[in-house]
């Protein structure tokens, strides 16, 4: 905007803290709001319960060959509980968590009326969107980290940790295995952050957080369904979720990175597209809430 280039009166009279410090302060305040909400804490518990359930179910059942490679592998190395949990949760629970946080982001503030007070502080609309998006991304980090850490802990407790036998059969050290687990977690986070871009866009369209939440859940679930219909294979590479399960490729020797690379590109494209759309819509929107 050209307005910000002509020497602003206020910026001279009120210096204020540095940009980094002030954006950091707003982001921390945002995260405190997210983490402090009882409902979000319950949501984290749900996310954490999945690896626990998997581990206990494996422990008490008689060994048999499952259709999930990670679940089969988990009995020999607890670390795979985390991966099994990730595989299961990227289908619904993790996207649902992103949907809930997206609903709160802008639509929730509009619904409680706090949006008009934030904007008149003032927070520029661009800054508000960027801080909200950053908070959503960090929310995705928290969700995935909880699943992975709980998975490794409960898996380690029930099945032990040790040298990791990869899906391709080669054995690597536990440190190497954990490193690959971190990469897998980052890859899942990237996908969820792209979904958060869709969430942010939906969130500026409505004043009802529940409506935004449902819309995002429907979008991600619909993409999984479309991805499961083999007659639509021409469409699959364009679906956000199509490459999400590719983090399993990190557990082959050597790591197979083609699909992961394509997945990251699709994630990036979705994120850029939808954050831009959100910005374009929000920038000229009348705030009537």
């Amino acid at each position: 905007m050209s307005a910000s280039e002509t020497a602003p009166v206020v910026e001279q009279s009120r210096r204020g803290p540095s940009a980094v410090r002030s954006h950091g302060r707003m982001l921390r305040s945002e995260l405190r709001l997210i983490v402090g909400r009882r409902r979000n804490q319950m949501g984290l518990l749900v996310l954490a319960s999945v690896p626990v359930m998997i581990a206990i179910a494996l422990k008490v059942s008689t060994p048999r060959r499952g259709n999930n490679d990670f679940i089969t592998a988990a009995t020999s190395n607890g670390m795979f509980v985390a991966l099994a949990a990730l595989t299961i949760e990227i289908a619904l629970f993790l996207p649902l968590a992103v949907a809930v946080l997206s609903g709160d982001a802008i639509a929730g503030e509009a619904n409680t009326g706090t949006l008009r007070y934030l904007l008149t502080v003032p927070v520029t609309r661009t800054r508000l969107l960027l801080v909200k998006y950053a908070a959503l991304a960090i929310g995705a980090v928290i969700g995935v980290v909880v699943v992975v850490v709980v998975g490794v802990l409960i898996g380690g407790l029930l099945f032990g940790l040790g040298p990791v036998t990869l899906l391709s059969g080669t054995q690597v050290s536990l440190a190497e295995g954990l490193w690959r687990l971190v990469l897998a977690a980052l890859y899942v986070i990237a996908g969820l952050t792209a979904l958060a871009g869709i969430g942010l866009f939906v969130s500026v369209l409505t004043e009802q957080p529940i409506a935004a939440m449902i819309a995002v859940t429907i979008i991600s679930t619909a993409m999984w369904i479309l991805d499961g219909i083999s007659q639509l294979d021409w469409l699959h590479p364009w679906l956000l979720v199509h490459y999400w399960p590719a983090f399993a490729d990190l557990f082959r020797q050597p790591m197979y990175l083609d699909e992961i690379g394509r997945g990251l590109l699709v994630n990036l494209a979705y994120a850029v597209l939808f954050v831009s759309l959100a910005w374009a819509r929000f920038g000229r929107k009348d705030i009537t809430s």
Binding site: P17, S29, L33, V123
Partner: peptide
């Protein structure tokens, strides 16, 4: 505190 944190120019 939340509104103040959102203020780009507020001195923490």
């Amino acid at each position: 505190m939340r509104l103040d944190a959102a203020d780009r120019f507020a001195e923490p």
